[in-house]
Amino acid sequence: MPGLIRGVARTAVVAGTATAVSGRVQRRQAEKYAGRDANIAAQRTEAYEEQMYADQPPPQQYAAPPPQAAPAPDPIEQLKQLGELHASGVLTDEEFAQQKAKILGS
């Protein structure tokens, strides 16, 4: 019987050691690959989000409104200025008549 107990004890020690080594190896591998798995998960999430937003049309961009045209000059004001230029002698009678016709004709 002492031989039997010794055999059983040896088997128990070998099995216990194998279990402890196996558990330690498993933990080390889990720690080693945890960072890699996190990177893979992040890349998959990013690819999924890109795919989700790729189907949507881009946001609309509106063009700036065209600048407003300058208001049309007041013909009365133009005639007053033209009269002042004629009275001061800058314009001759002929030039005054041409400019006046131009303003009133437009």
Rank of each mutant, 00 (worst) to 15 (best):
M52F: 00
K80L: 14
A42E: 02
I40W: 02
R24Q: 13
F96N: 12
G16W: 08
Q60P: 13
R28D: 11
Q98F: 09
R36A: 13
Q68E: 03
E77I: 06
A18G: 10
A18T: 14
V8R: 04
N39R: 15
A63H: 01
Q43L: 15
D93K: 00
P57G: 08
R6E: 10
E77C: 00
P71C: 03
V25S: 10
A63D: 11
Q26P: 03
Q68K: 13
K102R: 13
V21W: 06
A12I: 09
H86A: 15
M1N: 05
V90C: 06
A87K: 10
F96C: 11
P58L: 01
V25G: 05
M1G: 13
E77R: 04
D93M: 12
R10K: 10
S106L: 12
V25R: 13
I5Q: 11
S106W: 08
P2Y: 09
P65E: 10
K32T: 11
E84M: 13
V25T: 06
I40S: 12
R36P: 04
Y53Q: 03
V25F: 07
G35I: 05
I76F: 14
A64K: 13
A69L: 01
G89W: 02
L4S: 08
A63Y: 12
Q78F: 01
E46Q: 09
E94F: 12
K102G: 05
P2V: 15
P65C: 04
A42Q: 10
A72I: 08
S106Q: 13
Q43F: 05
R28C: 02
Q51V: 12
Q61D: 01
I76G: 14
G3K: 00
Y48L: 13
S88W: 00
E84N: 14
Q99P: 05
A54W: 05
I5M: 14
Y48K: 13
T19W: 08
G3R: 11
S88Q: 15
P58F: 06
Q99N: 08
Q60A: 15
S88I: 05
M52Q: 12
K102V: 06
P75K: 11
A9F: 12
A15Q: 04
M52Y: 14
L79S: 14
L91Q: 01
L91R: 00
K80W: 05
K100R: 09
T17S: 09
Q56P: 04
L82V: 02
Q61R: 05
V14Y: 05
D37K: 14
A63N: 09
Q78M: 15
L82I: 06
I40E: 13
A42G: 13
R28P: 08
P58N: 06
I40T: 15
G89I: 04
E77P: 00
T11H: 01
